[in-house]
Amino acid sequence: MTTMKSNLHPSTEMLEKFVSGDLSVGVNLAISAHVEMCDHCKSAIQQIELRTADQWTNAESSSPAVYQADTASMIDSIIATPQLKEPIEEESEVGSIHMLDRSVKLPKVLAKAASEGLVWKQLGAGISQADVKIDEEAHCSFLYMKPGSQTPVHKHQGTETTLVLDGSMTDELGEYGKSDFIFRTNNDTHQPRTEDGCLCFSVLDSPLTFTKGLARLLNPINKLRFQRAVGSRVS
């Protein structure tokens, strides 16, 4: 995958949480896919890894439970296992998504996430969605907007992470292109639209609320859909 200049990146704080392993799986996927396309964040992450590891190594143990175990026998069993001389090579399947009018090559991590197959459903107004059931706490999906389409005005109750994978879109706050990473917190109301079509990966940690017109009728359905995607939890 060719790397390219990207305008919108995850914040430093998010990259730090990404490195220390504190984020949900869905957001991890979005950041990882962005980093694969972004040299800037790639090198930022190397620096953060060094810093984080340094803090980790030098931290006084604050954990009340001190690690106790029969270390000698554990070490025995470990060094009885063979060492690796070569990294384990995985045959990388080519991960592309075929849309009506285009075929998009996905970042590796998203290709993996989609490897069990995507089922597209129409949300209306030229927008389709395919869920990725991978995170019990967030709703992850691929969203495809046909050229010339626009989503109903909506509001977020939680956070919405969007990674643009192909094409472009605009909303009240700006214009976004391939590899742009957009993070929105609650109470941002917006209405993305696209001229030339747009494929995104989206992570929501709570359902969208549509705020205008007939689309409001979708709200109860949308909540239901979210609950289904998230799993068996009942509100």
């Binding site: 984080t52 190594t57 001389k85 070569e86």
Partner: peptide, 17 residues
């Protein structure tokens, strides 16, 4: 750590990281 020790690359980061 044991199994991958031969694969460690010191040009990319340090042992701690």
């Amino acid at each position: 750590v044991w199994q991958k020790a031969p694969l460690y690359n010191s040009d990319r980061g340090n042992v701690q990281s």
